[in-house]
Amino acid sequence: MTTDQLPALNRSAALERMGGDEEIYQEVWEVFSDDVPTQLEELKRLLQANERQTAERIAHSLKSAAGNVGAEQMSRTAAELEKRMSSAPNEDLNGLFDSLKQKFEEVLRLGTC
């Protein structure tokens, strides 16, 4: 399945992993929506500085953070960024970063409406 075929926000699957507890989902969502912008900024800075090893770790972190709330497209894009970090040219990584940021913004829109 391609990234775009995945749901942008699969809230019900995430909720199921949390035993159906809405309160847990809400708390995790709040941490996710507060913390991810900082991580994205850091990731951008690291990519600009070509500090790929640390950037790979941040992408890895974003992959699982997104996975927790059911942000499946975002999680997949972060995974791709992590996987390609050591070998891809800068322009590809920058493109993936832009896509990751867009997917996060979409998830925020979906999650707060």
Partner: peptide, 10 residues
Amino acid sequence: DETNRKLLER
């Protein structure tokens, strides 16, 4: 990671 930490804590 903070999101993972919160999830595990809960």
